[in-house]
C-alpha cells in the first residue's frame, strides 16, 4: 500500500499553500486517476508521492515505511516531458538500460526499434522518447507508477499503444498506479477510481 498522509506543501514561505492535509492511498493493482485543472498542483503531488519532493507536513509511506533514499525506489515516476527526462548527451540505449535490461517482449510491445539505441535524444520524436522513458522504469522492482500527463502531447495511436502496454504490465504485476491528467475520458477509460482534485484537495 502506498499511502500519502495529510500532505502539506508550498514552494516557499511567502507563496500560497499548494497542498494542505491531502491524503491518498493506492493499493497494489489499483489505478487511481487524479483529475484537476492545469496548474493546480497535481504534478507537485506526484513528485511528493514518488519522493522527488519532501512534503512540509505529513508523510509518504510504502507498506508502513518511508521510501528508500539510496537504493532503487519501488515508486517510479514517468514525466510529462520525455525530452527533459533523458540526458541529451547520452545515447538512447544508455538511457534505456540505466536501471535494468528490459526484456525483448517489452521492447516489442512498445515497438522500440533497436536501431534507435545508437542515436541521441534530439533525433527522436517525443512519442518515441516517451516510450523509451516508460520502458526504462518498468524494472521488476517497480511496484507503483506515477504517470504524470504522460500522453498529453502524443497522437492517438501512440497514446493507445502506451496505455495498452502499461495496463497489461500493471495487470500482470499488480502494479499500483496514479494517473494524473486533466483528460476526464482518458481517466475513465484506464482507471479503477478517480479522485477529483477540486473536491478533495482543500
Amino acid at each position: 500500500m502506498l499511502r500519502a498522509e495529510r500532505i502539506s506543501f508550498r514552494y516557499s514561505p511567502n507563496r500560497p499553500w499548494i497542498l494542505r492535509g491531502f491524503s491518498l492511498a493506492i493499493a497494489p493493482g489499483e489505478r487511481v486517476g487524479l483529475y484537476g485543472p492545469s496548474g493546480c498542483g497535481k504534478t507537485t503531488f506526484g513528485r511528493i508521492l514518488a519522493g522527488y519532493l519532501q512534503p512540509l507536513g505529513g508523510n509518504v509511506e510504502l507498506d508502513g515505511e518511508p521510501l528508500p533514499k539510496k537504493s532503487y525506489c519501488p515508486v517510479q515516476m514517468i514525466f510529462q516531458h520525455p525530452e527533459l527526462a533523458i540526458n541529451p548527451r547520452w545515447t538512447i540505449g544508455k538511457a534505456l538500460y540505466e536501471a535494468y535490461q528490459p526484456p525483448p517482449s517489452l521492447l516489442e510491445a512498445l515497438s522500440l526499434d533497436p536501431h534507435w539505441f545508437e542515436r541521441f535524444p534530439h533525433e527522436l520524436s517525443n512519442g518515441e522518447l516517451q516510450r523509451i522513458a516508460v520502458a526504462r522504469v518498468l524494472d521488476p522492482r517497480t511496484r507503483y507508477l506515477i504517470a504524470d500527463e504522460i500522453t498529453t502531447m502524443l497522437d492517438a495511436n501512440t497514446q493507445a499503444q502506451l496505455w495498452q502496454v502499461l495496463l497489461d504490465v500493471a495487470a500482470q504485476r499488480r502494479l499500483g498506479m496514479l494517473v494524473i491528467s486533466h483528460d476526464r475520458p482518458l481517466l475513465e477509460r484506464v482507471c479503477t477510481r478517480i479522485v477529483d482534485w477540486a473536491l478533495e484537495a482543500h
Binding site: Y72, C73, Q76, A85, E98
Partner: peptide, 14 residues
C-alpha cells in the same frame, strides 16, 4: 536539477 539526474537517483544510482 534536471529530471534525468533526479530520476537516476531514484533508479538507485549513487
Amino acid at each position: 536539477s534536471a529530471d534525468y539526474v533526479q530520476l537516476s537517483a531514484k533508479l538507485g544510482r549513487s
